[in-house]
Design a protein around this nucleic acid. Structure first.
Lengths: 335, 335
DNA sequence: ATGAAAGCGCTAACAA
DNA sequence: TTGTTAGCGCTTTCAT
């Protein structure tokens, strides 16, 4: 009735449980004949090891947790894909945690993960509050950050250089002959994806001797609708501009929608460059020129780091991964 | 050094482990004074229960597994969102499994989930092969299917009526005055999302006395690029048509791209209706009219069913959830 | 080469 | 109301 245990196998093979364990783990100390007996018993009974019992004694569950502010976003799911892939490769399972808006469930989840004795955590796209840090620290498991970082604590992270990426996006526009460049920024209070991108934009303008005009900067929350509204605002209130740098692809797409609504043609009447390189960017028309962030790779890299830490084969180390501009069809070269 | 166990708490509170367990579970049989002592010890030591040990004895891990052919697709991540949400609400964690192209990793994952003693499985968007069924059956845990189904076995599923939804999409086009209607189908070998949608399309035409022309049907694999190609093929080879029904939003978006490339205006020159209602559909321009599938709700419902089954508070039951057409701006009313 | 036995941290009879 | 104890299924000394 109940699934067979190692005891049942031992009995069937006429050996002790210790021996069964030995052959199952390919240790030493058993004859070839015993091995056959055991393997046959395993086969006949359809025995499957119980990872829970194993975990209780090994103090390892071969499971990691990954936290996202919004699992269903395109952004998160790309990262998840990389995480899952790397984890699976190394023999780990991954528990997904959706921390929901403003990390409402973060603490709760940390608690759950702790009780479930997970071996490590990938923490993504959310600012690491002190409260979280304390909890994480209490758990005594390795943590790797993706798309966020902390200077306060020694926690490895994997992200792109947001400031530099924004700089280059703006610079790209300038090299294409644009001088009147607007920006649609994300929330300024976001210390990772907010401020640095605006700074990069400003710096690029400054380095080219272009005056920064705050009226050409509109703010959104990285989402589609906010991008659409920001663009409408810009179109209505800002000094004229020939190009826009949006701090996220979703906002860029929203901005394009707004432009279309006003009868503008892209890139003929207005150029636009995004940030992220989500799938949607190559699917819309015209395909969006944008800054590519290797999200899946970042998830993968973070997970590999995490597992190395778990198996303590490595020291804590962070990575700035490289971004690049994907030239598609939303930026026009000005004469 | 090591995290405190129930024993440590017992010692600190000067009671037995049984008593600690009792107050922690709010059972009966302890005085208020003991309760205070225990709670205080818990507090002081920062005790956290070990779910692994608990699972070993309860034979319940409060964890479910969910399998996707492609976690990073928009489609999967919406379902995942619903699953995660419902699971979290009921006190379950979810392990995500990406079965990869053609279910390469499905069997492997089923094995892992089994060893990890998960309490149930949500199986999505993939045809349930006999091999999978056998494995699932061996595991003796409840399973709920999402977006797929099986007639051969008694496994509850949650999905929309694909045939009817396709019928209605086509009918919608007809009611808007279209009579020359092409279709971009998914893979015909897909018994869930392939054939039924084509049948629904044909039936709708037939019911309106419109002859079905096989040359107006092109085939893709549900993905963007295949939709783009299918549309190019249709435009080049098919008899003229004024509207297209695409069996997935991604293909619809690809088809729109192809149309734009040919200088066609949507919906002025060509109407198009999609299927799925992914986020992208409302973000592109013009926003795509499509058949809404409540993916997150489906994930949620399936998970609730699953958990009910786990806690055997219910009998096996399937649900056909309702779809509806979201009218946006890609279908033009013909005079 | 093999087995006996002691736990891992917890729950749940069963006693007291 | 409280404690003792026997496991859950497994790994790992330590004997033999």
């Amino acid at each position: 009735m109940n699934p067979p245990t190692i005891k049942d196998v031992a009995k069937a093979a006429n050996v002790s449980v210790a021996t069964v364990s030995r052959v199952l783990h390919n240790l030493t100390g058993f004859s070839d004949k015993t091995k056959q007996k055991v393997l046959q018993a395993v086969e006949e009974l359809g025995y499957q090891p119980n990872a829970i019992a194993r975990g209780l004694i090994n103090k390892r569950t071969q499971t990691i947790g990954v936290l996202f502010p919004d699992v269903s976003s395109n952004f998160s799911s790309d990262i998840l894909h990389g995480v899952e892939d790397a984890a699976h490769e190394k023999g780990f399972s991954v528990i997904v945690c959706n921390t929901a808006e403003d990390g409402k469930r973060t603490m709760k989840y940390l608690q759950v993960l702790r009780e479930k004795q997970i071996d490590g955590i990938v923490f993504t796209s959310e600012f690491l509050k002190d409260e979280y840090y304390e909890a994480l620290n209490d758990m005594r498991v390795p943590v790797v950050l993706v798309n966020t970082q902390t200077h306060k604590h020694m926690i490895p992270y994997v992200k792109v250089d947001d400031r530099q990426a924004a700089y280059q996006a703006t610079d790209y526009l300038i090299r294409n002959g644009h001088r009147e460049i607007a920006m649609i920024s994300g929330t300024l209070t976001d210390p990772i994806a907010g401020t640095p991108r605006v700074e990069g934009y400003k710096q690029a303008l400054a380095d080219h001797g272009i005056e920064v005009d705050e009226d050409r900067i509109a703010y959104g929350n990285f989402g589609y609708e906010s991008g659409r509204q920001a663009m409408h605002k810009l179109l209505a209130e800002a000094p004229s501009f020939t190009a826009v740098f949006a701090a996220s692809d979703e906002m860029a797409v929203g901005a394009m929608g707004a432009a279309f609504e006003k009868g503008l043609k892209i890139p003929d009447d207005l150029s636009i460059i995004g940030y992220d390189d989500l799938n949607i960017s190559r699917m819309i028309y015209p395909p969006l020129t944008t800054v590519h962030q290797p999200l899946a790779d970042m998830g993968r890299l973070a997970t590999e780091k995490l597992i190395a830490l778990i198996e303590n084969t490595s020291q804590v180390s962070s990575s700035i991964v490289s971004h690049y501009i994907v030239e598609r069809q939303t930026v026009r070269k000005l004469p």
